[in-house]
Amino acid sequence: MSGFPNVSAMTTLITGATGHLGSLIVEHVLNRIPAAELAVSVRDPEKASALAARGVDVRHGDFTRPETLRTAFAGVDKLVLVSIDGPDEERVEAHRAAVAAAKEAGVSFIAYTSVTDADTSPLILAKVHKATEEAISATGIPHAFLRNGMYHENYTPALAQGALVHAAGDGRIASASRDDLAEAAAVVITSDGHDNATYELTGPTAWSFAELAELGGVEHRAITPQERQAQLASFGLPEFLAELLTDIEANIAKGVLSEVRPDLEKLLGRTPRSIQQAL
């Protein structure tokens, strides 16, 4: 693990590299460029020791401590900015700090993991992403907005519990594999022609919860958003997270996430994995 950042030319850096999405992006990027050209920014460098052993430059960077980002982003040419979790106010502030640090460091391209229709979506989740996209656009740095749909993996684990409870009604959702979305991010950050592009990234089909339950051989039960939020809170989820997850399902019921878009298939050069394949 290096004590100082590698400031050689053409360094690509990925934030959140030990997280669910970030770690997958790292693997796909390593399939496309040498480890010596890759750096990662993580809150706990010890958790990325395996990457350091493979020749990746592991740096300490914490969005809530902007002073660490000045060092983490030093010498970086291309940046994959993976959105963080938490309450909206904290996320927006942290994301803006990261964007400012990228500007200060002279980063020449930012790929940001956003959400479907971030600028127009009624989702509570979209507010943070809209604000972050606006902050990136304001810097003048060439960028790509990777507007990820919901992950298959948000929903398939529930099948192991023997029942699928939701507030999505008969709505349909065009979810995608987290790994496919990670591969798309790797394609964008390691190839040219993506300046100021916006990609709406979904799976190849839209499915309903009734169909998912049938695929998994379990029962499903649609409840009201109020009941769903109370249920999620009873599981011990923070209030903001219970509200956010319920809001997603309520908007699925309204058809907000049902549209299948072609961008993911175009970036991958193949058909993305379906919910059936995810099972």
Rank of each mutant, 00 (worst) to 15 (best):
Arg221Leu: 14
Leu164His: 03
Leu164Lys: 04
Thr198Tyr: 08
Asp179Arg: 08
Ala186Leu: 02
Leu264His: 07
Gln276Gly: 13
Asp263Met: 01
Thr198Phe: 09
Gly149Trp: 00
Arg221Met: 14
Lys266Val: 12
Asp180Cys: 07
Gly171Ala: 05
His152Gln: 12
Arg172Thr: 05
Tyr155Lys: 09
Gln226Met: 13
Arg178Met: 10
Ser177Arg: 04
Tyr199Trp: 13
Pro272Arg: 07
Ala158Trp: 11
Ala167Phe: 01
Gly169Ile: 02
Leu245Val: 12
Glu243Ala: 15
Pro262Met: 08
Asn196Thr: 10
His152Ile: 03
Leu237Pro: 10
Glu265Leu: 06
Arg172Val: 00
Glu211Pro: 05
Asp170Gly: 00
Ile173Asp: 00
Glu265Pro: 06
Gly193Trp: 14
Glu153Pro: 09
Glu183Lys: 07
Ala163Leu: 09
Ala250Asn: 08
Glu259Cys: 03
Gly193Ser: 12
Ser234Asn: 12
Glu153Lys: 11
Ser258Cys: 02
Gln231Glu: 14
Val188His: 05
Ala163Asn: 09
Leu237Tyr: 10
Asp263His: 13
Val256Ile: 04
Arg172Phe: 01
Leu159Val: 14
His152Gly: 00
Arg221Glu: 13
Glu239Ser: 14
Gly269Asp: 10
Phe209Cys: 01
Gly193Asp: 13
Glu265His: 10
Ser234Asp: 12
Tyr199Thr: 07
Glu249Ile: 01
Gly255Ser: 01
Thr190Trp: 10
Gly269Ala: 10
Glu214Ala: 15
Thr271Phe: 12
Pro225Gln: 12
Arg228His: 15
Phe209Tyr: 15
Val260Arg: 02
Gly162Phe: 06
Ala210Asp: 15
Arg273Gln: 15
Leu237Gly: 03
Gly149Asp: 03
Glu153Tyr: 08
Ser177Gln: 07
His220Cys: 05
Pro262Thr: 02
Thr190Glu: 06
Arg273Ser: 08
Val188Thr: 04
Ala167Pro: 02
Pro272Val: 04
Leu237Lys: 14
Gln226Glu: 15
Leu268Thr: 00
Gly162Met: 06
Ala222Gly: 14
Ile173Glu: 00
Arg172Glu: 06
Glu239Phe: 11
Thr246Pro: 02
Asn196Lys: 14
Glu214Leu: 06
Thr246Tyr: 05
Gly216Lys: 05
Ser234Tyr: 11
Leu244Val: 12
Lys266Gly: 06
Trp207Ser: 06
Thr198Ala: 10
Gly236Ser: 12
Ala253Glu: 07
Ala213Asn: 02
Val187Asn: 05
Glu259Phe: 02
Ala158Pro: 08
Leu212Asp: 03
Gly236Met: 07
Thr271Gly: 10
Asp247Phe: 01
Gly169Met: 04
Arg270Trp: 13
Tyr199Ser: 05
Val260Cys: 07
Asn148Gln: 14
Thr198Arg: 12
Leu181Pro: 05
Val165Pro: 03
Asn148Pro: 04
Gly269Met: 11
Asn196Cys: 12
Phe209Leu: 00
Tyr151Thr: 11
Val188Cys: 02
Ala233Gly: 15
Ala167Asn: 01
Ser234Leu: 06
Arg270Pro: 09
Glu265Phe: 01
Thr156His: 10
Thr271Asp: 13
Leu268His: 08
Leu159Ala: 09
Pro157Gly: 10
Asp192Tyr: 14
Gly255Met: 00
Glu239Thr: 14
Thr224His: 11
Phe209Arg: 11
Ala160Phe: 08
Pro225Leu: 02
Phe240Pro: 01
Ala210Asn: 11
Ser274Thr: 15
Glu200Ile: 02
Ala184Leu: 04
Asp179Gly: 03
Leu201Trp: 01
Gly255Arg: 01
Gly203Pro: 06
Gly171Met: 00
